[in-house]
Design a protein around this nucleic acid. Structure first.
Lengths: 213, 213
DNA sequence: CGTAAACTTGATCCAGTTCAAAGATGGTGG
DNA sequence: CCACCATCTTTGAACTGGATCAAGTTTACG
């Protein structure tokens, strides 16, 4: 089963209990999962694709707050803190995900500490990620943020590396808190530091040099 | 006892267990509690004063990530996600706080769901707060962020209100992701919209007008 | 009261947004 | 398999919000 990150950390019984209440479904690109302010009744687990979670300002501009990919849980903070969704979620591309009724999850987690633990871990990671995004925004320039993203995503010994971006550049821009144009310019400035980009394919010639930017 | 927010939500037994392992202490202003990267062994609860949690960039600039006040728990995400502190914490003014050994907290939380629940709630709130800060930074100008802060802190019917800032302006600036100069300029621009500031004392003449900024 | 720290104000500078338009990509049906 | 079209991306130019640096000014507190 695909929601491995969730289920693999659970004992068989808890995993079974969760499987029992899971509803698997697919979403076309741009489909909205929920909107900020709506009553929260579902916990999601991304199986494939990417879900963008963002906030709106009064005149409709959007700011991405987190980008969830395969294995990620969306809405964990609502399991116990109930109430309403605090942001809007939208499929960034065709995606599949598992839905769990929040009330039932609450009930199972109350009985089974291993589930509560998995949820706490997910929440902790999300908090750490939010904090680094915040600090990143405030401390680093666009090329620095992009460099850091590239380093995190070839996470290596220091040898040259290459990989495919897992999603569109405009999505990456949003995740990094940039307008697409700014991301584009950042890439072209990094070209002078051993970064080659063709479509979604990225080559990093010298990770050490990137780290020094 | 002062750590009310923590203890009041616990059953007597859990509260007693936590009291038993608590160590109360005071900190002078500017004292460091822990640094990013250090092994995490303590959970903190602020009893009085304010603790600034921030990240550093390579050349020493700081970005505040959260400001914790009376009743707040610091380090909850480490209870289960163990490991190391992911940011640095410093007393922003003379403060008192309770320290709890993380291993022991882990052990108690494993036994007592009510403690686990309190921790999850704290974590959820912190995540929601981090997300709004992130979106706020990305969507709003300095005067807008300040206006929002003022509204949140007189949270009222729409009548004129006044209150005392709970800490120095430079701290507030950091919390809002601004340089102190930018906060100062924001205040003086808000003067034209019914906001009067003298020292730490703030008057908001027309909350409705602020909301429209 | 006097001194150190906090705050304000002014001037300059720069990163990143916005708007506009050209250029690349990739998925689709013929 | 190729051509086509919508969508995404890049590039350019102008603008702007906020950072930074440098003085002054006020505040708090011993």
């Amino acid at each position: 089963m695909l929601s491995s990150r969730l289920l693999s950390q659970l004992g068989v019984e808890s995993a079974a209990a969760m499987m029992e209440i899971a509803a698997i479904g697919t979403l076309p690109a741009r489909q909205i999962l929920f909107r900020e302010g709506e009553a929260a009744d579902t916990l999601f687990c991304v199986l494939s694709g990417y879900i963008r979670v963002y906030k709106l300002d009064p005149d409709g501009r959007e700011a991405d707050v987190e980008l969830y990919g395969p294995g990620d849980l969306i809405g964990v903070s609502l399991v116990f803190d109930g109430g309403r969704y605090t942001a809007t979620a939208q499929a960034a591309e065709p995606s599949t995900l598992a839905r769990f009724d929040l009330k039932r999850v609450r009930e199972i987690a109350g009985r089974r500490p291993d589930l509560a633990l998995v949820l706490m871990n997910a929440l902790s990671e999300q908090l750490a990620s939010a904090y680094s995004n915040l600090a990143n925004d405030r401390l680093h320039t666009a090329p620095q943020r992009v460099a850091r993203y590239l380093l995190d995503n070839c996470a290596h010994d220091g040898k040259a590396a290459s990989f495919r971006l897992p999603y569109q550049k405009s999505l990456l821009a949003g995740k990094l808190g940039l307008a697409p144009e700014a991301l584009s310019r950042a890439f072209s400035m990094l070209r002078g530091h051993g970064v080659n980009v063709r479509g979604r394919f990225v080559q990093v010639e010298d990770p050490e040099a990137l780290r020094r930017i």
